[in-house]
Design a protein around this nucleic acid. Structure first.
Length: 200
DNA sequence: GTACAGATTGAG
DNA sequence: TCAATCTGTACT
């Protein structure tokens, strides 16, 4: 049985999918080069009801239109003019929610990641949303990709059991403008992972 | 056409 | 603590 996560995983709500994504693996086959990592930090963006979300109040623009696709597509965009943010859409078609992958633990392709990140410090390769995109080479060329079918990018379940007390649930990072939504506990990370971007 | 903020990072 | 850097979005 293939360990690849299939559609049903991504049609859950973003909060549930974000929590379940911890301990799963992300794989990028980059021109024959295999890069992979274990997901250790995620955030959920709940769409129309969530002021921090690009699709708050059903907003739909050229940038975020793929959020409206069925769960399992890549929504990637740039922030601060220089960093990519990798999101996976969730929910059924027409429901614009997504999960932001904020940090992974590097597994395969570490040498290449070090080149791309210009550092030999393991801890600095993928411990943040912008960092991991640079290490993995994720950019606009992956916009809208269906990760349940793509031969370039997918997620795998390697059957790791995550104990309940390993999962920390906190407020999201960098969205102070979002009023009461800024306080929703929609960020998840693995307590014992040194690759988590920020501790509160 | 113009203005401006931003789901970050790394250097000082 | 703060600058880098530029696209998306709203507004004129």
């Amino acid at each position: 049985m293939s360990p690849r996560l299939k559609r049903s995983f991504f049609t859950d709500s973003a909060v549930k999918a974000a929590r379940e994504m911890l301990g799963k693996y992300i794989i990028h086959l980059d021109n024959g080069l295999k890069l992979s990592g274990r997901i250790v930090e995620t955030e959920s963006y709940m769409g129309p009801e969530d002021k921090a979300s690009h699709s708050y109040n059903w907003r739909k623009t050229r940038r975020n239109k793929v959020e409206y696709l069925i769960g399992g597509h890549i929504y990637i965009y740039i922030v601060y003019g220089m960093y990519w943010q990798l999101n996976i859409t969730t929910g059924k078609e027409g429901m614009p929610q997504c999960v932001l992958i904020r940090a992974v633990e590097p597994v395969e392709g570490i040498e290449e990641m070090m080149k791309r990140r210009k550092t030999s410090l393991l801890l600095n390769l993928t411990s943040g949303p912008g960092k991991l995109c640079q290490a993995f080479g994720f950019d606009k060329s992956h916009y809208g990709l269906d990760i349940t079918r793509s031969s370039q990018v997918w997620l795998e379940d390697r059957r790791e059991k995550i104990p309940r007390n390993e999962i920390v649930r906190t407020e999201r990072v960098g969205i102070d403008y979002a009023e009461e939504w800024a306080h929703k506990l929609w960020r998840f990370y693995l307590k014992s992972s040194p690759f988590v971007s920020k501790r509160l």
